[in-house]
């Protein structure tokens, strides 16, 4: 992989009359862990959803791995891609949600093998083998047959991470992965993510866990009102924020 894993240039997004993103520009290099922080309503989650085209951007350009997201560039005109092409690209980007969004009618194993079977058309045996290994890796080797309702929040989120990994993504997006968890369950999920980061996975993480951002993040991006206010190495940014808004935010969360 050469060039940035994700590159955003002046990305805009509005919902009706509400401007959510007002020109986001940033780059994520392969292997980096980028943490997005900021007050609620600052557009972090929306930006994350734009990266795999769950939301359509209204202006600007967004590339993943050198390819435009959701559009085809024909000289000076943009054409929205066909659904199957969008789906094919999404398959290369993992996503982990705040509320897990596991499929409740499938077991943990069923959740993890679903996409490899249906999207990658892997043979069942191979998919099961890989899924079992992944679930063991996130510490749930004994919960293969459990339904999501029978698992704790932390376990569910770890299944969700295994589900994302099963597609061998080049990039994983995390949307506040620990916000819906009880405090004592946060650690197990962060540990799993720490392991991924150590393995060199490219990750974009929307989070409120400043400790995690400081320790694991390569870049910390502070967003407010749909723009990137400032970004830099986490330790530096947390120790010496330059902008008033960053200072105000950090004083509240630290």
């Amino acid at each position: 992989m050469s060039g940035p894993a994700v590159k955003a240039e002046d990305v805009h997004k509005r919902f009706g009359r509400l401007d959510v993103l007002n020109g986001i520009s940033l780059e994520v290099q392969p292997g980096q862990v980028v943490c997005l922080v900021g007050p609620s309503g600052s557009g972090k989650t929306t930006f994350l959803r734009c990266i795999n085209h769950l939301e359509r951007i209204d202006a600007g350009r967004l590339w993943v791995d050198g390819e435009l997201v959701g559009y085809r560039d024909d000289g000076d005109k943009l054409h929205e891609l066909r659904e199957s092409d969008v789906a094919r690209k999404r398959a290369q980007i993992g996503m982990v949600f705040q509320r897990f969004n596991l499929f409740p009618h499938m077991t943990a194993l069923g959740n993890v093998i679903e996409a490899p079977l249906r999207v990658k058309k892997q043979p069942r045996e191979q998919a099961v083998q890989r899924a079992t290994a992944l679930l063991e890796r996130v510490g749930l080797g004994d919960k293969l047959g459990a339904y999501p309702a029978q698992l704790s929040g932390g376990m569910q989120q770890r299944v969700a991470i295994a589900r994302a990994l099963a597609m061998d993504p080049k990039l994983i997006l995390f949307d506040e992965p620990t916000s819906a968890l009880d405090p004592e369950l946060v650690g197990e999920v962060l540990d799993t993510m720490r392991g991924l980061a150590a393995d060199g996975m490219t990750m974009v993480v929307v989070t409120h866990e400043m400790g995690f951002a400081r320790e694991v993040g390569d870049v910390l991006v502070f967003m407010d009102d749909g723009v990137v206010v400032e970004s830099g190495p986490p330790r530096e940014l947390i120790a010496n924020p330059r902008h008033e808004r960053t200072k105000a935010f950090l004083s509240k969360v630290l």
């Binding site: 959803r49 795999n52 769950l54 659904e83 199957s84 789906a87 094919r88 690209k89 999404r90 398959a91 290369q92 980007i93 993992g94 996503m95 949600f97 509320r99 969004n101 596991l102 499929f103 679903e114 996409a115 249906r118 999207v119 969700a160 589900r163 994302a164 597609m167 997006l173």
Partner: peptide, 14 residues
């Protein structure tokens, strides 16, 4: 829940 559709589509399902 809409999250179900999000999750499935994020996995690359049509």
């Amino acid at each position: 829940d809409e999250g179900q559709t999000d999750a499935a589509q994020a996995l690359g399902m049509t």
